[in-house]
């Protein structure tokens, strides 16, 4: 169990002060926004997608140190990945990177808001780029199984 101030280690504090990939992509191919009603954390993610690959990703918004650090790490993980690989990103990929595997339940939502936004952005993109309607059911099932 993470306790005391140990979740606020150097990396978390540094990321919160100097987030990676912070900003906006004006000519994004997809953007998505969501917020956490409990604490007011609010994140937008913009992505540039070429040839089924995330060629650029940026985020902006307001959030606690945990939220900002996790979003930074997530954008780093995502950049350059194929859309199929982005689908496979899961919560432990972010948490383990920051040593937050045992984060208490009340803070998990701070840590995973960005993952929710990323996946929503991904499926928004996929949904709007379907060449035919056959894929919709499959996509819907995949999206429903996310959370």
């Amino acid at each position: 169990m993470s306790s005391g101030t140990d979740i606020y280690h150097e990396m978390i504090v540094d990321y919160s002060r100097n987030p990676i990939n912070y900003g906006e992509i004006e000519d994004h191919d997809v953007t998505f926004h969501d917020s956490n009603p409990l604490c007011g954390d609010s994140i937008d993610i913009d992505m540039k997608i070429d040839d089924h690959k995330v060629t650029d990703i940026k985020f902006h918004g307001k959030g606690c140190a945990i939220c900002m650090a996790c979003t930074s790490v997530l954008t780093e993980i995502t950049k350059g990945k194929s859309l199929d690989d982005v689908k496979k990103i899961e919560k432990n990929d972010i948490l383990s990177e920051l040593g937050l595997e045992h984060l208490q339940a009340v803070r998990i939502k701070c840590a995973l808001l960005s993952l929710k936004v990323l996946k929503s952005a991904l499926y928004t993109y996929l949904g709007s780029h379907l060449e035919n309607t056959e894929g919709i059911d499959k996509l819907k099932t995949e999206a429903e199984n996310l959370y």
């Binding site: 979740i7 606020y8 919160s16 409990l38 604490c39 007011g40 606690c64 140190a65 945990i66």
Partner: peptide, 23 residues
Amino acid sequence: ADVHPHDVADIIDKEGISLRSGH
């Protein structure tokens, strides 16, 4: 300063202090 209230509340909770953060 620039510390998010959620982080303030989390850190001082470990000192036994029940302080509200949020909207």
